[in-house]
């Protein structure tokens, strides 16, 4: 089993999970994303890097149509998951978001118990047949979020009472509870201390086994540590996309090089 997985990790060509073509995003009159085309692979961690305001978070939010909740935002172009257009009018964004989970910059547990936080997704999507089923899903998800051991004795305590790192892992557990295929992470460690960050990064590496993970990060070291593929955004353009190692050691575009060496950003 283990050998198989190591083998898999080294395989370069994987199934394409998300395919974006000519994506444009407008906030009112502001053209925030320009002509972005990218193929994101399954069972891979893909990092989006770039200076603040470059559009990396905006693009991330297009993938599960979170931008729909902002009135002035308009998206054109083509984004496909498993070769299915997610902006097809027949697609229900609600179902899409169950398939494409999201973890936010600031840990945002609901003001409910730990159990209810995790059980919320399965409940609304009707994933559990009975209470035992739901208990099962909650435990599995908390284990996958690498927080089970810390909270198993206080599942009924409020989620807001946990520390920042624990809260974020709870949010990850909450996201995986709906059994998504893609996990979007919007700067998941920016509000955390180094130790909590290390725990989350370790977790991301484990999640790669099961999901296609897309992470937006400010920290280039983090991108280098956790991702296999990296995309560099600048002023709404996707400047360069490729193997993480290549991007950091041998970038093609001079803008990428300037950013990585700290001259812009």
């Amino acid at each position: 089993m283990n050998d198989m997985r190591i083998l898999e990790r080294d395989v370069d060509t994987k199934e394409v999970k998300i395919a974006a073509r000519d994506v444009q995003v407008y906030y009112g009159t502001n053209h925030a994303i320009k002509d972005v085309s990218v193929d994101i692979e399954d069972k891979t961690v893909t990092a989006f890097i770039g200076p603040s305001g470059c559009g990396k978070s905006t693009f991330l939010r297009c993938i599960n149509r979170m931008n729909d909740t902002i009135d002035v935002c308009r998206v054109t172009g083509d984004i496909r998951i498993d070769n299915q257009d997610i902006y097809d009018p027949r697609v229900d964004p609600v179902q899409l978001r169950a398939k494409v989970g999201m973890v936010f910059q600031k840990p945002n547990p609901f003001p409910k118990s730990i159990y209810d936080n995790v059980a919320y997704g399965p409940r609304i999507h009707g994933l559990a047949r009975n209470k035992a089923d739901l208990d099962d899903i909650v435990e599995k998800s908390l284990r996958r979020g690498a927080i089970w051991d810390e909270v198993k004795d206080r599942l009924n305590a409020p989620g807001t009472g946990l520390s920042g790192g624990q809260q974020q892992r709870l949010c990850i557990a909450r996201a995986v509870a709906t059994e998504p295929e893609v996990l979007l992470m919007d700067e998941p460690c920016s509000a955390l201390d180094p130790i909590a960050t290390a725990q989350i990064e370790e977790l991301i590496d484990e999640l790669r086994q099961s999901y296609s993970v897309v992470i937006v990060t400010h920290s280039m070291q983090q991108a280098a540590r956790v991702s296999q593929k990296t995309a560099f955004f600048h002023l709404g353009n996707l400047v360069e996309y490729g193997e993480t190692g290549t991007i950091f050691t041998n970038p093609v575009d001079p803008r990428t090089e300037s950013y990585i060496t700290g001259r812009i950003g």
């Binding site: 998951i81 498993d82 299915q84 997610i86 097809d88 027949r90 697609v91 229900d92 179902q95 899409l96 398939k99 599995k140 284990r143 996958r144 690498a146 995986v176 059994e179 998504p180 295929e181 484990e206 086994q209 099961s210 999901y211």
Partner: peptide, 17 residues
């Protein structure tokens, strides 16, 4: 962490549409 490596989708899910 054996539990954590369970396959993500327990039941096959219908397409998005």
């Amino acid at each position: 962490m054996t539990d954590a490596s369970l396959s993500p989708a327990a039941a096959p899910r219908a397409g998005l549409i």
